[in-house]
Nucleic acid binder design. Structure first.
Lengths: 192, 192
DNA sequence: CTAAATGCCTAATACCTATAGGCTTACGGC
DNA sequence: GCCGTAAGCCTATAGGTATTAGGCATTTAG
């Protein structure tokens, strides 16, 4: 039987799919090798080690989520853009729980220097540009959105909202609009 | 040499300390056993398995952070209380990185039903009580604070803020005050 | 004083990562 | 067309991990 040849890309893709299907902790070289119908040591020709495989998943996810966010934000501004940005992340987290998990770990230094990492920060920056926030405060606002997005989705993912009413969905809509208000009146607040 | 006897508590404490010292992923039954100068299988008399050990760390951390938050919040209100709550969490995350990490995982169902879990939700509730937020919106505001706190500290922990100026500290102060403003004018916003 | 229970131990199994070294196949220079 | 080489898989092996089974000594209870 013909097997499609192994490549770093195909190995990492398989690992990412496995992560989505069974959780990031189930991603082992053994499991990936089984999936590819290959012996474990054969993978070492394509990825340096397990850490590199995980960093690969992280980089892949970073690029994917960045792309989707950029697409979602394109052509929108203000509240619409903010909602689209947040929803894009949330949908990605739902559709690809394992890939999302891979974004929640401390990755190798190399990951931060990838083109994917740079790409993933463009959408939030674009959204904020529409709010007229002073240059100096932009980074803080970026961190606010990042923190909220990350925190909410993470808490939702680990089930923190699961056992209390109302559904997380309600909070999601409401809080995004509150954040929109905060960003829209960022400067006004100073005058109080 | 006299060894202090093993108990579920002492095993979990040792595991938690190990997590703080070397990271949660380094917490293995082997490592804990080495630390306690005991053979690995001996631990099974005190913890069911590795998952239970991890859940034990999570429960311990939940209780500790909840206590510190409650202490910090006691006798304060409004912005002071919010700052104290946030700082208590941040200081705990810094002093006990491994225990903090243990709060970021999907824990067993049993953890959510512990007394510690209930205790840990009291401080945020107390803080919000001071803001005059309508009953129905309390839970959303709680989730906002939880999301921000969790997200910010998590991103800081994995190093997301490390390679861009200004220091995370600046954003921390500023964003907490912004959130205070948002909470303080929670109702006013409706009338815009 | 003895029997049971407690609490640690050794032994064994089944995975896992990782390295070393061998076999097969395709391909380019001659 | 032949042969050396390199790519890409393989087997074998070492060492670390969780977990279970069963043994032995010491403490505790009757």
């Amino acid at each position: 039987m013909q097997r499609s040849p192994l490549t770093p890309r195909s190995v990492i893709r398989t690992a990412a799919d496995l992560a989505d299907a069974r959780g990031l902790t189930e991603v082992t070289l053994s499991a990936v090798a089984r999936e590819l119908d290959v012996r474990t040591p054969s993978l070492y020709g394509h990825v340096r080690d397990l850490a590199a495989l995980r960093d690969g998943i992280t980089t892949l996810a970073l690029g994917e989520v960045g792309d989707r966010a950029s697409e979602a934000v394109a052509g929108r501004a203000g509240r619409d853009a903010l909602r689209a940005l947040c929803d894009a992340h949330r949908e990605y987290a739902r559709a690809h729980p394992g890939r999302w998990e891979s974004l929640q770990r401390r990755a190798g230094d190399a990951v931060a220097r990838t083109e994917e990492a740079a790409r993933s920060s463009r959408a939030p920056a674009a959204v904020l540009r529409g709010y007229g926030i002073p240059e100096d405060d932009r980074v803080h606002a970026t961190r606010l959105i990042g923190s909220f997005l990350n925190g909410f989705l993470h808490l939702e993912h680990i089930g923190s909202f699961a056992h209390s009413a109302p559904p997380a969905d309600d909070s999601w809509r409401l809080l995004i609009d509150r954040l929109d208000g905060l960003l829209a009146h960022w400067n006004a607040k100073d005058e109080k």
